[in-house]
Amino acid sequence: MRADAKRNRDQLLAVAGTAVAEQGVEVSMRDIARTAGVGLATLLRHFPTREALLEALMHTSFGDLTAEAGELERAQAAGDALVSWVRDCVAWTTEYRGVTVLMAAAIEDPDSALHSSCVTLRAAGARLLARAQAAGAARDDIDGEDLFALIAMLAWAGDQPALAPRADRLLGLVESAVLVGAGGGRGTPDK
């Protein structure tokens, strides 16, 4: 990639990250291009669809969360590893307004630019869940799809202005519902 093309791509991603965090995933592609100081055609050459732009924007974060799951598997007790990873996933998904809706749709759509990353992320969570279940720290009647849905639900709640103040309490309630026994993590959520 030529130096000027790389510079344009990097600038587009930087601007898009800020715009999506502030305005949500439906932010105008034209506004992103304008703020980045390039034409819409340049943006579309790099990212032909909104999903392609979002996938590029979130690719590093998906990779980081997947790697974190592997590190937690090796470094923490099973229940604590699961709780830590879920909390980090929820925190990350609330950084980009509206991304949970796209992720939930993308995981069911193999043609989506986000599909592969979402499937990989769900598999990482499923491994942590299975480990917690094998250790007796998590209920055995949920699976990776349920966990992914719970993360999406919690992130959606945190994205809603009326529910955002309760987001941490809701996360604690979900943790208590998923984890079992003394190794079950954080105990009773704050009232």
Rank of each mutant, 00 (worst) to 15 (best):
A182D: 10
A69N: 01
G181S: 04
V90L: 07
R45A: 04
L44P: 02
G63I: 05
R50H: 10
D159W: 00
R186F: 01
G187M: 06
G185M: 04
C89M: 10
E95G: 06
V15I: 15
A157E: 11
G181V: 00
T60V: 12
D168S: 05
I151Q: 14
A164W: 02
D140C: 08
A14W: 08
S176C: 04
G39E: 10
L13A: 15
C89Q: 12
G70Q: 09
A104C: 08
P110R: 11
S117F: 06
G79S: 07
G63E: 04
S112N: 05
E95T: 15
V15M: 14
L173W: 10
E108M: 05
P110S: 10
P189T: 05
R169Q: 08
D168K: 02
A132I: 02
D143I: 07
L121S: 07
R74F: 04
M153Q: 12
D159Q: 13
G172N: 03
G79F: 04
E108K: 09
E26A: 08
A5F: 10
G184K: 01
G98E: 00
R87C: 03
E108N: 06
V101M: 03
D109A: 14
D159S: 14
E26T: 06
L44F: 12
V83S: 13
A36M: 13
G17E: 11
P110W: 08
D168M: 00
G181D: 03
L54D: 05
E108W: 01
S112P: 07
A3C: 02
L129D: 11
E22R: 15
V180G: 03
A126F: 14
E71L: 11
G125E: 12
P189C: 01
A56Y: 08
G183E: 04
D109C: 05
E145Y: 06
L40F: 11
D190H: 03
A126V: 11
V83L: 14
D143P: 14
I107K: 04
V20R: 01
I142E: 03
I151S: 13
V20N: 02
D168V: 05
H115W: 11
M103N: 06
Q11N: 13
V27K: 03
A78G: 01
L147G: 04
D64W: 05
D111C: 03
S28T: 14
H46A: 11
A78D: 01
G39K: 11
D168Q: 04
V101A: 14
A52W: 01
W92I: 05
F47M: 05
T188F: 10
D64T: 10
L171R: 01
A149L: 09
T94C: 08
G183N: 02
I107L: 09
S61Y: 07
V101Y: 02
S61E: 15
D146E: 15
Y96F: 15
V86M: 15
Q11R: 15
F62L: 02
P110A: 12
V119L: 13
G172E: 02
L43C: 04
P48Y: 00
Q76V: 03
